[in-house]
Design a protein around this nucleic acid. Structure first.
Ligand code: ZN
Ligand code: ZN
Ligand code: ZN
Ligand code: ZN
Lengths: 252, 252
DNA sequence: ATAGGTCATCATGACCGGT
DNA sequence: ACCGGTCATGATGACCTAT
């Protein structure tokens, strides 16, 4: 596999729920996503730095890290992706062996695209079903996939998107007073400004949990710390508006 | 029981290992004392404030709190104490219902006495056996109890003790920079200066674990914050030097 | 190749019998 | 009364199967 878990840093077992993760973080995300009530509040101001040793200590920060790196239950099942996706993904990874910056940017764009895609899916469901996040399987998947715009799951839609500012809300910025806390998000993970609507949509899913209320603030802070590395264009296959019209369930 | 767990604040189930604790903290201390290697480092500078909700989050700070309130595996089995002890203990607790300060001071003196007593026991074993803390049952208990000084387990020995300065070592003081961290030890728990040798002895037992290396520093800081409340004299029955001559095992 | 299920392992704490 | 053992419960992650 020759990849590291984007959540804890351990050797990755594969590409799970939209990010390269280890078996532990994969199972954790799969369990926790459907049982958010089992998470207790962080006792460290939601600033825990997750690594292999302490990943089981704070479930709140572990799940937050999972979401930060783009994991989503409803999106990005590798097996269902088209050959175009697989080839693109592997190509980006192989290019990374020759150029580290491009690798990081490619990974960032990969995560960003998946995150945005999933966020749009979440957003669609929230707008129609009214907040239930366990009803994803009720979406008429086959109907959607039979529409003329059914190529949605074959590509990314992370470029030239005009973000809707309706759900943007001002959240308290993270306190930068503790000097002992290393930055939560390493520099090689890039979050572009156009991802803000995705963040807003994700918060719409998890917003009722106070422990995740600081996600948006952290994400915006990361966007401000954006590096000069340029995310690789993974091409745009369809209009993003199509995503909002037809809810898409990539799972099963 | 009408008592609170001195470690986490939950309703206490009884007097366990030298302090009023709940069932959880009792079991935790009983397990952890014999399996120190299972404790991982604290990720919050050993400053976690233990309560009922987060007591399972940081084993290092939970065990540190256990030791701070005077818990010890080898000492203070309530069932083996004399009537004088029981009456004295209950009297001090009942006095607390009328005077909070005296109650706090009595509880502090109670814990301090037990801690000092156990510390002297630890110190004796450390001086003879050479650091093994699972060999406590190897002490010749019956022989000790048959000596003329065998009334040791009936009282406290926490007054007018001249501390030996041999093991006193300078440890870094706790950082008082974080303002968001509430003080670990509330004011109603008093640690007298004459307890310093006990601290040194306890560190001799647990010193090889880095997570407990800050215990002495915290204890000394608490001693400096000593309140004007006077610890109640629980009377001195024997010379403390006798404790060092004959190791005493109160368990079993 | 991944998603989901299974299950061995471990930590926890309520409970009980012996002392 | 406490101590130590027991065990139901839940969390974790390695492994497996279906796709
Ligand atoms: Zn991981
Ligand atoms: Zn945390
Ligand atoms: Zn407790
Ligand atoms: Zn801690």
């Amino acid at each position: 596999m020759n990849q590291t878990c984007r959540v804890c840093g351990e050797a990755a077992a594969g590409y799970h729920f939209g990010a390269f993760t280890c078996e532990g973080c994969k199972s954790f995300f799969g369990r926790t996503y459907n049982n958010l009530s089992s998470i207790s509040d962080c006792k460290n101001s939601n600033q825990c730095v997750i690594n292999r040793k302490n990943r089981t200590s704070c479930k709140a920060c572990r799940l937050r890290k999972c979401l930060m790196v783009g994991m989503s239950k409803s999106g990005s099942r590798y097996g269902r992706r088209s050959n175009w996706f697989k080839i693109h993904c592997l190509l980006q990874e192989q290019n990374g062996n020759n150029n580290n910056n491009n690798s990081a940017a490619a990974a960032a764009a990969l995560q960003a695209g998946v995150l945005y895609q999933n966020a749009m899916i979440h957003h669609s469901f929230l707008g129609s079903a009214g907040g239930g996040h366990k009803q994803l399987k009720q979406g008429s998947v086959e109907d959607v996939r039979s529409t003329p715009d059914s190529m949605l799951d074959d590509g990314f839609y992370c470029k030239s998107v005009s973000p809707p500012n309706s759900e943007k809300e001002s959240l308290s910025p993270p306190d930068s007073e503790k000097e002992s806390v290393s930055p939560l998000f390493p520099n090689n993970i890039i979050f572009s400004p156009f991802l803000k609507p995705a963040v807003a949509a994700d918060l719409g899913v998890f917003g009722r949990l106070p422990l995740l209320s600081s996600l948006a603030a952290t994400r915006e802070a990361s966007a401000e710390n954006q590096q000069q590395d340029e995310p690789i264009d993974l091409s745009v296959k369809t209009q993003p508006s199509a995503l909002k019209q037809a809810p898409l369930d990539l799972s099963k």
